[in-house]
């Protein structure tokens, strides 16, 4: 019973913190994009445009909720809720500090991979339930991309698991706190594994350069074509949450989580997560979108073989006493 209360309390805390960070993240992305494109970004709503996210969200929420006449109501309504649940549920096993973790599962990495893989269901439900050919095409592309990039994601995530000998994320972070961060040493399986994890995480959240499933020039809006108002806001939010939680996961698995040169704690985790978050925006506003076949070729001919090789290297590292 104590675990249930602990989980509910910390879960609510972490979910609220993530959603608040998303709200500020919207402002930051607009300003960052503006500066990268040599313009100012939002400046009107609030000082330096700081209230822009609230204006955006109020605008989205007060729009009319249009449901196509022949849409499958059950699937149509279920999809945005499931999308947010799958994105937010991953954060339940990430340790944000030595004591802040919602649920310290001893198979935390499996939970992350499983709940992240559940994202296929809301994608399909949105694409099929919209009764719209663009949505269905977007859903098929998104499912193919999600399933394909799941393979390098699993391989990359297995590298810290093998090197630290623990499937629980708090165990991996504690191991890194005692020894050394995986992206720093051993550098050969560690840093390439982080790069593969980063690319796979970008592809799983459908961020540029992997956002062909929601490419406006090709598919109107992909699976979210028929969604308006609050449900669209949920999808929008789910994508941001997925990105933020993926950054937190990368910081925990490869960069030592809450560990730091002095005074380990929550601030280091926040710093590393936000650094990766900004890196994702940087990539998003600098690069062009991959074509679908380029995307698949990258996954299957580059990321997957390199991931398998890295797994073998880390297994050899552990066997021949590299981690002692």
């Amino acid at each position: 019973m104590n675990e249930l209360v602990h989980g509910a309390l910390y879960g609510t805390l972490i979910a609220t913190a993530i959603l608040s960070t998303i709200a500020m993240g919207i402002w930051f992305e607009r300003k960052f994009a503006g500066r990268m494109q040599q313009r100012l970004g939002p400046t009107i709503v609030g000082p330096a445009g700081l209230l822009q996210p609230f204006a955006d969200i109020i605008k989205l929420l007060q729009k009319e909720d249009i449901v196509p006449r022949d849409a499958d109501r059950g699937l149509f309504d279920l999809a945005p809720i499931l999308a947010v649940v799958c994105s937010l549920g991953v954060a339940a096993v990430i340790p944000f500090s030595p004591s802040i973790i919602a649920s310290d599962l001893d198979v935390g990495v499996l939970w992350v991979l499983g709940i992240g893989g559940l994202m296929v269901i809301p994608t399909f439900a949105a694409g099929w339930g919209s009764n719209n050919k663009f949505a269905l095409l977007g859903a098929m592309r998104a499912i193919a991309q999600s399933v394909s990039y799941g393979v390098p994601l699993v391989l990359a995530v297995l590298v810290p698991v093998v090197l630290s000998g623990s499937l629980s994320i708090s165990g991996i972070v504690a191991w890194q706190a005692q020894h050394h961060w995986f992206a720093v040493w051993p550098i050969v399986p560690g840093l390439p594994a982080f790069v593969i994890f980063f690319l796979a995480m970008l592809a799983e959240s459908n961020r540029i350069p992997f956002d062909i499933p929601e490419a406006e020039s090709e598919l109107v809006a992909g699976i979210t074509t028929e969604y308006t108002g609050a449900k669209f806001t949920l999808f929008y939010m789910a994508e941001y949450v997925h990105t933020l939680v993926g950054s937190a996961l990368g910081a925990a698995l490869f960069f030592g989580g809450w560990d730091g040169p002095f005074a380990p704690g929550l601030h280091w985790m926040v710093l590393k997560t936000l650094t990766l978050f900004v890196l994702i925006y940087w990539v998003r506003w600098s690069l062009l979108r991959f074509r679908a076949d380029q995307l698949m070729r990258l996954c299957w001919t580059w990321l997957t073989p390199i991931g398998v090789a890295l797994l073998l290297v880390s297994a050899a590292w552990v066997t021949f006493g590299g981690t002692n």
Partner: peptide
């Protein structure tokens, strides 16, 4: 059986369900 539960979600729902849905499509 926590490991089995994790594998069930990952393989069955993430794998078999996806296969079935694509097969239906």
């Amino acid at each position: 059986a926590s490991f089995l539960a994790g594998v069930q979600v990952l393989l069955y729902i993430g794998g078999v369900m996806t296969l079935t849905l694509v097969g239906i499509m």
